[in-house]
């Protein structure tokens, strides 16, 4: 089918939820046997490549600022294991160094969202919605971790993932392979650059990406999460009327900066956060946001405005 015709069909036939932003879906290729650990193995050609934008962390203090980082992701599944191949540009090689006290290693992490009614908070989960993680640090051993919010990262039992990396002139190619210990619906990625003292929240991160089989659709459980929301222009006016930026502006410091919220959040999270702000607080911020008495369409409009693509 020609793309133009497909687009026309979707425009008329598809309900809104079937068209989340394209970068929020990542397709896995199935294979017989274990996927390769070697980043240059031929089998990787079978996995569709998607380029994700990793955005500088700006929700809590200590983010790196600067530009977004494009990361190419490919995923293979087989033999009961999942393998993720990530490739990104990086000018200097920064390894864990047992003879340095002031340097940090390049690193990358895969974050898994366990199956649930909603996605966990993108910033390392929530108290009742843990995330699972694989972490690779250049020159170190990969780790299997779990977290329930910023600052809660801890070791998770079980076999750690295996990893193999390749340093090229352009940057890193890393494969992480293991058995996710819980059924999961989505993945997210983060990268740290040793050259800018990357560690903890000094990182770049992606939004959740729903993991979908070839030819598959967004799982039913994520459709409400992905539903885009209302009228962004009206949402923008309402955002100004309510004075949201007084706390959520770039330098306000009283609440997470929402300037580029749409880069890392899904509409479902934003709706929940507006409706019930105290249900989950980003660690480090006080419960100062009132639950505004907003009509459902106003919440939709605000969510649509916040999801706007970053400039």
């Amino acid at each position: 089918m020609r793309p133009a015709l497909l687009g026309l069909l979707l425009l008329f036939a598809a309900p809104a939820w079937s068209a989340p932003p394209p970068e929020r879906i990542i397709r896995v290729a199935e294979m017989h046997g274990l996927p390769p650990l070697d980043p240059v193995a031929a089998a990787w050609a079978k996995a569709p490549a998607v380029t994700l934008q990793l955005h500088p962390q700006s929700t809590v203090a200590g983010g790196p600022g600067g530009a977004t980082l494009p990361v190419e992701a490919r995923i293979l599944r087989g033999g009961g294991q999942l393998a993720v191949r990530l490739a990104w540009a990086d000018t200097g090689e920064n390894l864990l160094d047992a003879r340095a006290t002031d340097r940090f290693a390049d690193a990358v992490a895969v974050q898994f969202a366990p199956v649930g009614a909603t996605l966990p908070y993108i910033g390392m989960g929530e108290p009742k919605k843990p995330v699972r993680l694989w972490l690779w640090r250049a020159g170190g051993k990969p780790e299997r971790l779990t977290a329930t919010g910023f600052g809660s990262l801890s070791k998770q039992g079980g076999a750690p993932p295996e990893a193999q990396s390749r340093r090229t002139a352009a940057g890193w190619e890393v494969v992480l392979r293991g058995k996710p210990d819980v059924p999961f619906t989505a993945l997210a990625f983060a990268a740290w650059d040793g050259a800018e003292d990357g560690r903890a929240g000094r990182k770049r991160l992606s939004a959740w990406q729903a993991l979908i089989k070839p030819g598959g659709r967004l799982p039913a459980g994520l459709r409400e999460e992905a539903r885009p929301g209302g009228d962004a222009a009206r949402g923008e006016r309402l955002y100004a009327e309510l004075g949201c930026a007084a706390c959520h502006g770039p330098q306000a410091g009283l609440a997470p900066d929402l300037t580029n919220a749409g880069n890392i959040h899904w509409p479902g999270y934003l709706r929940r956060a507006i409706r019930e702000p105290a249900a989950f607080l980003v660690p480090g911020y006080a419960a100062i946001m009132p639950a505004f008495s907003l009509r459902p369409e106003e919440i939709e409009n605000l969510a649509a405005y916040l999801m706007k693509p970053s400039p």
Binding site: G62, D97, A98, R99, A100, T101, D102, L153, R199, A200
Partner: peptide, 20 residues
């Protein structure tokens, strides 16, 4: 986890990062 924010924050520089 060896983030070393404490090392930078201590004005007496009496926290040490063990790189091993």
């Amino acid at each position: 986890r060896g983030y070393r924010y404490c090392v930078a924050a201590c004005p007496y520089k009496k926290i040490y990062f063990n790189p091993l």
